[in-house]
């Protein structure tokens, strides 16, 4: 019982902390972000299983986390607002060749990351970008001007 409660609590604490950390392009995850991901995961495991490291306990914890995740996914699909709270919304970073400073500042984005995404699409100048969009999964979509 305690394991399931700890798993639920750990899931939502981790979700909150990861969510309020600034969204960074996932495909460009640096070693710095790997440290955060592994350290947080490792810490939350300690409180979830506690001293009981039996297969039974760990199985229950895994099932509990899976069930919570499925429930949250179901709730996200039912409620767009919940989806926005958990995943955020796509944000336009460049519009008609112009940076959107409020979004860049608010999301703590590095312009180099957007420029790197633009180069992948063969665009070398910001003025040639019609839209650059920071997607919910952290990817940056670049639409060049026609």
């Amino acid at each position: 019982m305690a394991t399931i409660l700890h798993a639920v609590l750990g899931y939502f604490i981790l979700l909150l902390v990861v969510r309020v950390l600034a969204r960074r392009p996932g495909s460009q995850m640096t070693m710095f972000e790997f440290v955060i991901v592994f350290l947080m995961g490792g810490i939350i495991i300690l409180s979830t299983v506690g001293n009981d490291r039996s297969v039974t306990n760990c199985t229950c914890a895994v099932i509990a986390v899976g069930l919570i995740h499925r429930t949250v996914s179901w709730a996200k699909n039912r409620s767009p607002m919940l989806g926005a709270i958990i995943d955020g919304t796509p944000l336009v970073v460049i519009r008609n060749g112009e940076w959107q400073p409020e979004v860049v500042r608010g999301m703590k984005l590095r312009r180099e990351d957007i420029e790197a995404a633009a180069r992948e699409r063969g665009v070398t100048r910001v003025e040639d970008i019609e839209y650059a969009i920071l997607e919910r999964n952290g990817r940056i979509s670049v639409l060049p001007k026609e």
Partner: peptide, 21 residues
């Protein structure tokens, strides 16, 4: 956005979220 591209941006929500952060 600009009546051209369906992005689903919600800047008003995002401003509230930044305040919450």
């Amino acid at each position: 956005v600009d009546e051209k591209i369906a992005v689903g941006e919600n800047l008003e929500f995002q401003r509230k979220w930044w305040r919450f952060e």
